[in-house]
């Protein structure tokens, strides 16, 4: 049997499996997403938009792609989702993986598994609104530009806001720095104090190995005006294909909600102490998750 035949057979078998399995699951998923979107507590106007431009119809379609990743690529396991309280809440997590798929997976978990389903409001980078189509997709799926006023307004409207205080420092860390939490920004804590918002710490295990970066070419990033230019095992070696993340197993743990009281304009040291408590909580959950895991891929 020649190699070509083997390949043809393999492809044939694969196609059969895909056609046998996929349509059913896709329709199932679609139904499930639609069902969840109907039950979100976010208020919409007569034209189906919320005040920040979120639109369930567009979000539904984008969420289908995310949900396929959630179920079949990363096979996400979610723990403690019931810890998300009703009303306003700030989700604070570790950030890694070169592409913000951790945020997408968390938002999928909150839509498909939380009761009631919630829409996660992301705080986007300042340059995102200048990119054609991306600006619209970002807004329609519930994210906004990450300004202070936007965050306060969303929280006062009892929404779920997600923030990664490691920011770009976490996102572009190299493979040997995985699961080492970088310095946390303090903005989220000041906002939580100002708006009396509970914080739910989140630990994502898996994301930090999805695109193992071995270098970050700063000069190239500056040249291309990108926040970073990571070199992974596959990127830029395989071109666009190199952007596909490894099918690692994701485990997302939602911790107990933490409430803080105090003056939002306190000195950095005072705020810093509170930030450290959140960071420690995430670090503990990460350590527990890493100890429990047997393999990267299942």
């Amino acid at each position: 049997m020649s190699a070509t035949e083997t390949v043809t057979q393999a492809v044939g078998a694969l196609t059969r499996t895909v056609t046998d399995v996929l349509p059913e699951t896709i329709f199932d998923l679609q139904r499930q997403i639609e069902e969840c979107m109907r039950r979100i507590p976010t208020r919409l106007n007569a034209y189906g938009y919320d005040p920040w431009g979120f639109n369930p119809d567009t979000a539904r379609r984008a969420m289908l792609v995310t949900a396929l990743f959630y179920r079949y690529w990363f096979r996400v396991e979610t723990q403690g989702i019931a810890n998300i309280p009703p009303g306003r809440v700030l989700l604070i997590g570790n950030h890694a993986g070169q592409i913000a798929l951790d945020a997408a997976m968390i938002s999928c978990a909150c839509l498909l598994e939380a009761e009631p389903p919630r829409v996660i409001r992301g705080m986007g980078e300042y340059w995102l609104p200048t990119v054609p189509w991306v600006n619209e997709l970002m807004v329609r799926t519930g994210s906004v530009v990450g300004t202070r006023k936007n965050c306060i307004d969303l929280l006062e409207n009892e929404e779920v806001v997600i923030a990664f205080p490691e920011g770009i420092r976490g996102m572009n860390k190299l493979i040997w720095e995985r699961y080492q939490l970088q310095e946390f920004g303090q903005g989220f804590m000041r906002l939580a104090l100002e708006t009396h918002t509970p914080i739910v710490p989140i630990a994502v295990v898996g994301s930090e190995e999805q695109a193992p970066a071995i270098a970050n070419v700063r000069s190239l990033a500056r040249l291309l005006r990108l926040p970073a230019f990571p070199v992974t095992l596959t990127w830029p070696l395989l071109g666009p294909l190199g952007l596909v993340p490894l099918p690692v197993k994701y485990r997302i743990t939602f911790g107990e909600p933490m409430t803080f009281e105090g003056n939002p304009s306190d000195e950095d040291e005072v705020i810093g102490e509170k930030v450290e408590q959140v960071k420690a909580s995430i670090a503990t959950m990460l350590a527990r998750g890493l100890a429990a895991r047997r393999s990267l891929f299942w």
Binding site: P51, W52, P129, N135, V145, T147, K149, N150, D153
Partner: peptide, 9 residues
């Protein structure tokens, strides 16, 4: 402007 918050005060 691209970095305008929604609901400028």
């Amino acid at each position: 402007l691209p970095d305008n918050p929604y609901y400028v005060d």
